[in-house]
Design a protein around this nucleic acid. Structure first.
Lengths: 339, 339
DNA sequence: CTGAAAGCGCTTACAG
DNA sequence: CTGAAAGCGCTTACAG
């Protein structure tokens, strides 16, 4: 591997000059800089981040931390972040946190603390108190995508509004028996997204003068098979909603699947609306409240880079991204309703 | 940040002893080691990878390189790799290569060459000749998941067999007009997966004494909307297959969607079989040739770690993973066929 | 079993 | 505008 001394030797200058020239620092003669760049290119020389990081304390890398990423959502956040990080010459370190506290401990104390990254992007994670403390102790810029975490700026959508939008759509179609599927109460590591969407759901019902029926709210995590189980639970309760609002599109897909398996038609017998505009939602004709998750990842990464560059801590800011209702074929008026 | 000198001072030993004790090297008194470990834990000390990497040349990180990862497949490979990397104390660097040569250049020459990783896991990427050369010049263990790349060990499935399995299933059901959707001829960066599956398709037809009709083979990349377009193309050609074998599950989903949009029933009018057993395939009742992609990622990562540990280059090995046909509700006998 | 010291490949005051 | 030299935080022969 060619090192800085090789370049310096070939250029007939000191390593200090090479270092300055290649990093675009001022105080290098233009001709000198050109010559050095030329030679570095020929030699395929790139400074070793390990060596460069020792004196500066900078690593040139950013961590993206998320729960074990069996989901479209986290992949999308990552993709967005990767876009802007790569464009700015940063590397992306990927950390997945399991739900088991012991494994989380390993990542937090052993991997993350290793001064390996300049900044952290936390995706939709509810952290324990100790973890938040550890995070701040690392003294690196942190950005959260999804939930609001005390003390850290974040990018998110207004989840209460999301719930209102989705439920309002169903109400306007004429539905009154509307179920909510989402928010597992014993998911300690979940995040306050589902409760917020549920609150929006309740608000929309109230605005329409509909008395909410607690039996119509069923817990669920975020994946399709959670939706299957939730809808089965709904049936077991012997309630018959004409519409369901689910916490995510994947859950909505599961609900649709289970409903059809039980002989219900969507949307004739059951309207379903999800959240996300998942890459595959169009395949299901799913009506959904869309959010641009990739863009959230991009913005979070860009903000981190900006803070790294300027050193300025934009006081704990919350960036709220827009959402929009996309109506497809999974929702309609309830059976027998008059326009 | 506490450094090794802090630990040494507190323990009343030299930094050399701390270094040896913490890394489990022999030649440290048991009581000394225990004491040092205790203190390191109290102080939350972990060696800086930058500093440790300088003298050793090791980084403790592995790169996972894949095409811009808008796909379930790459996410799954990553997840598998992350499992075993984290368990072994390695960090995972994620690199996405675009299809544009200039952007690829940036990743290859600027990011990857930066001696930032100890080993590379390449996921389903056809590399240009220059890129393969650059890869070998890096002189780091490389492992490929997916296609066979000359000079590098890989983990893969037998794609010819995959094609035979899927097509054989359709043949046995009584289909004779079977289409193949996959393999975009002008996808220069694609990989030889689709041609292999196509070859298996042709073999299965031949075994059954069916003359292949070139009009029944339609190019397609790997995503759902590619399947939509491909099926539309098939219809435009005025051919009427009773069954379609697609290069991936996502493509199969697109084909099913477009077929239904045109009034065809699946499987009554059209049988569809895909490849992967995508996380969502069950939602579509999709018959598929299953492969365990996460496991492939795990094996690739484990092999890399093994090679890093022992320094032994297992001569260019090809690990072929099993596949299996999963029959669901997207395939049946063709209309009018007798059992 | 332990320590003193050189060295890994850079960056950054400090001189000139 | 350029260079000599110290130093970043570790690891690793080499002595003892």
């Amino acid at each position: 591997m060619t090192g800085i001394v090789d370049v310096a030797a070939r250029a007939g200058v000191s390593v200090a000059t090479v270092s300055r020239a290649l990093r675009g620092l001022p105080g290098v003669a233009d001709t000198t800089r050109k010559a050095i760049q030329q030679i570095a290119a020929e030699l395929d020389y790139v400074a070793s981040p390990s060596a460069a990081g020792l004196p500066t304390g900078r690593t040139g890398a950013v961590a993206v931390v998320s729960p074990v990423a069996r989901g479209w959502y986290f992949t999308a956040v990552c993709e967005g972040a990767q876009d802007v990080l790569t464009a700015n010459g940063y590397d992306l370190l990927r950390y997945e946190l399991s739900e088991m506290e012991t494994d989380r401990h390993r990542v937090f104390d052993t991997q993350l603390l290793r001064k390996r990254v300049d900044a952290l992007l936390i995706a939709s994670l509810r952290l324990t108190h100790d973890e938040v403390t550890a995070l701040h102790a690392m003294n690196r810029p942190v950005m959260v995508v999804g939930p609001v975490v005390p003390g850290s700026p974040c990018v998110r959508v207004d989840d209460v509004d999301v719930g209102r939008l989705a439920t309002g759509h169903l109400v306007r179609l004429g539905h009154r028996a509307i179920a909510y599927v989402g928010g597992n109460p014993d998911d300690r590591l979940g995040f306050p997204v589902s409760p917020a969407r549920h609150a929006g759901y309740l608000q929309a019902l109230e605005s329409a003068g509909i008395e909410p029926d607690p039996a119509l709210t069923v817990p669920s995590k975020f994946r399709a098979n959670d939706g299957v189980n939730a809808f089965a639970e709904l049936c077991a309760r012997n309630v018959s909603p004409t519409a369901v609002f689910t916490v995510s599109d994947e859950v909505a897909m599961g609900v649709m699947h289970e409903a059809r398996r039980r002989g219900l038609r969507v949307p004739e017998d059951l309207s379903v609306v999800g959240v996300d505009n998942h890459d595959m939602s169009w395949l299901f004709g799913l009506t959904t409240v869309a959010q641009d998750v990739r863009e959230q990842g991009r913005i979070a990464a860009a903000t981190l880079i900006e803070r790294l560059r300027t050193g300025i801590e934009h006081e704990t800011s919350v960036t709220t991204m827009p959402t929009s209702l996309i109506v497809r074929s999974s929702t309609s008026r309830p059976a027998g309703a008059r326009p």
